[in-house]
């Protein structure tokens, strides 16, 4: 039964983005480019259709009553006012449906929380209002903030039409670059208030707190540029701290990394303020963490 529902969901899901030509009128969650995002999308469509089916049933009874049992049509009210049997039925059936829903949800949840065997670990720090990326065992780190064109256009009464700016509010100066097909573990923290790191195509969102580290992981299955935004109110420019992830092929990523390591001038130099974590130590720690 669940399987069938899942197929139905997948079929519809595949159908919905057909309207993607009208990208602006987008109505649904992206399927995304990671295993987790696809599973989450599946859960989303499953629960959505469960709700639709129940809604259709309940609403039909109501609409039928509204149309059929009108006083103006001479309807005479019945005198019954309860039925234990029916009430038991409509308590038990929803419970069954919910259990059916909870099982796949729990499975996905367990996968999401499984941080083991990550291949690349990046510490991401939120600041008011920019992100800092630190490739822990690679000695590469840099800040990433709203791109200049967007920044100019978004000023109060700037006179610049946002529609003329490409990727308005969704472009940064330094992109977060990761390799494809690699389990990337993101360690999140914050330098001031709570922020949240979110790229819809990766399916996950996690809050970043000052003084604590929260974690998430993703494995992008294709290359490309994926955009997201800070998703926790963090003050004045909360709306203006985008996240842009560029997923490169493994070779391109290595090349990029080496270039970064070599040209300490840009953009890593700007990050002198950020504490550099000793590579050796971190390696050791990661080994410990992986083993747990």
């Amino acid at each position: 039964m669940l399987k069938i529902l899942k197929y139905v969901a997948a079929a519809i899901a595949a159908g919905l983005p057909a309207g993607a030509a009208f990208a602006a009128w987008e109505v649904n969650m992206p399927v995304g480019v990671t295993e987790l995002s696809r599973e989450i999308h599946g859960l989303h469509m499953l629960i959505f259709w469960v709700c639709v089916v129940i809604a259709v049933l309940v609403f039909s009874v109501m609409i039928y009553s509204i149309v059929k049992f009108r006083r103006s049509k001479g309807a005479v009210p019945a005198t019954w006012d309860h039925s234990t049997k029916v009430e038991v039925v409509w308590t038990v059936i929803p419970i069954a449906i919910l259990v059916g829903m909870a099982v796949p949800a729990a499975e996905t949840l367990i996968k999401i929380e499984d941080m083991r065997d990550s291949e690349l670990t990046v510490k991401v720090t939120g600041y008011q209002w920019q992100w800092h990326y630190d490739y822990l065992d690679k000695g590469v780190s840099f800040f990433s903030r709203l791109d200049r064109k967007s920044d100019a256009a978004r000023q109060l009464r700037s006179g610049i039409d946002p529609r003329t700016v490409e990727n308005y509010l969704l472009e940064v100066d330094n992109r977060f670059v990761v390799p494809v097909d690699t389990k990337v573990r993101v360690l999140l923290t914050s330098g001031d208030v709570v922020h949240a790191w979110w790229v819809p195509e990766f399916g996950l969102k996690k809050d970043a707190f000052p003084g604590f580290i929260t974690e998430l992981w993703f494995r992008a299955t294709r290359t490309g540029v994926f955009r997201g935004q800070c998703a926790e109110l963090c003050g004045y420019d909360h709306g203006f701290m985008p996240i842009v992830v560029e997923v490169k092929s493994k070779e391109d990523f290595e090349a990029w990394l080496q270039e970064q390591q070599a040209t300490t001038g840009t953009p890593a130099a700007q990050t002198a303020a950020a504490p550099a974590t000793s590579q050796l130590e971190t390696d050791a720690a990661l080994t410990v963490a992986r083993a747990e």
């Binding site: 510490k123 003084g211 604590f212 580290i213 974690e215 974590t277 720690a285």
Partner: peptide
């Protein structure tokens, strides 16, 4: 305990509060 690196918060202690050991009473890391 989390600040001391317990449970799923290994990195909290390792990256942010390396020398802190959880105990009570405490005034924090």
């Amino acid at each position: 305990p989390w600040l001391g690196g317990e449970g799923s918060k290994f990195f909290t202690n390792y990256l942010l509060w390396r020398d802190f050991e959880a105990s009570w009473p405490t005034n924090g890391p």
